[in-house]
C-alpha cells in the first residue's frame, strides 16, 4: 500500500501535553512538515515562548531555545546573528506576542530580522487558565471578562498581521486558520512560504494562525473550530498581507 499521509519526521514520536483537540498540535505538524520538506532539520533552531506551547522544545526534533515571556523575537535575533547558517523560527501565543512581547515583535519586523514567526492566535491566555488577551473578541467571556470583553473598557482586539503589514521590513505576513482541511492546507502553504522567504534571505516573515482553546472556551474541539469560523475569521480576515512580490490576497 502506498502511504498518502505520514506524520512528520521533525516531530518527536511523543505524546504532547496539549488538551484534546487543541489546534496547537495541528500547527506543530505544519511547521514540522515544512522543516521536513525543506530538508533543514539539522539547521533549524526554534525559540519556544511562554504559554501552552512552552514545551514545544520537547516536541520538535530540532534544536530549540526557550525565551522569557514575549522575548522570543529578541532571542531569535541573537541566534540569527551568531549562527548565520541557522533556520530560525519562533513559536508564540497571542498573550506572549501581542501583549507582553509587543515591543519585541514590532522591532524585529522593523529591523527585518531574517527569522520566521509562527504566531498562534487563540484569543485567550490558555496556559494560565483562560484570561482575556489583547486578541480576545468583544463580548467573549474569559475568567477576567466574565460578562464578555467590553469595548469601552478593554478596547477592541488587536489585529497583529494588519499592524505589522504597515512596517516596511515585514517581508511576508499572512493570516491562516486551522479549522478545516482546506484551511489547514492553506496554512501549510503560508508557513512553508514564510520559511522559504527566510531561506532566500528575504527578511522577517510571520504567519498568524487562528487556533482553538477548547478547554478555556468551554467548548468541544469541533465546536471550538466552528466558533473560530463564525466569530474570529470575520474580524481577523485570512490571507496574505505582505508578500516579497508586493501582492496582497487578504479579505
Amino acid at each position: 500500500m502506498k502511504q498518502v499521509y505520514s506524520v512528520p519526521k521533525s516531530l518527536r514520536p511523543v505524546s504532547t501535553h496539549y488538551c484534546p483537540g487543541c489546534t496547537h498540535g495541528i500547527i506543530h505538524k505544519l511547521v514540522a512538515e515544512t522543516i521536513d520538506e525543506l530538508g533543514v532539520r539539522d539547521r533549524a533552531i526554534g525559540v519556544a515562548s511562554v504559554g501552552c506551547s512552552v514545551f514545544s522544545y520537547d516536541y520538535f526534533d530540532c534544536d530549540f531555545q526557550q525565551a522569557a515571556h514575549g522575548r522570543a523575537p529578541a532571542v531569535a535575533t541573537g541566534i540569527r546573528r551568531t549562527v548565520p547558517d541557522a533556520v530560525v523560527f519562533t513559536y508564540q501565543g497571542d498573550g506572549d506576542l501581542a501583549s507582553i512581547g509587543t515591543a519585541e515583535i514590532v522591532h524585529a519586523a522593523m529591523r527585518s530580522e531574517n527569522i520566521t514567526v509562527v504566531f498562534v492566535n487563540n484569543a485567550i491566555y490558555g496556559m494560565t487558565g483562560g484570561q482575556m488577551a489583547p486578541t480576545t473578541m468583544v463580548g467573549q467571556r474569559t475568567t477576567t471578562s466574565p460578562e464578555g470583553r467590553i469595548k469601552g473598557l478593554a478596547g477592541e482586539p488587536i489585529r497583529v498581521s494588519e499592524m505589522l503589514a504597515t512596517i516596511p521590513g515585514a517581508t511576508y505576513v499572512a493570516r491562516v486558520s486551522t479549522t478545516s482541511p482546506a484551511h489547514i492546507a492553506k496554512a501549510k502553504r503560508a508557513i512553508k512560504k514564510a520559511f522559504e522567504v527566510q531561506l532566500a534571505g528575504g527578511g522577517f516573515s510571520l504567519v498568524e494562525c487562528l487556533s482553538t482553546c477548547p478547554t478555556n472556551w468551554g467548548m468541544s474541539p469541533v465546536e471550538a473550530m466552528e466558533w473560530v469560523d463564525k466569530n474570529m475569521i470575520p474580524y481577523y480576515p485570512l490571507g496574505e498581507f505582505r508578500t516579497p512580490e508586493g501582492g496582497q490576497t487578504n479579505g
Binding site: 502511504q3 498518502v4 499521509y5 489546534t23 496547537h24
Partner: peptide, 17 residues
Amino acid sequence: CGICGRVCPDAVIEVFK
C-alpha cells in the same frame, strides 16, 4: 483521502492507499 491524518492535532493517524 488522508484528511483524518492531516486534521489530527496529535499526529496519531497515518493513511495508506
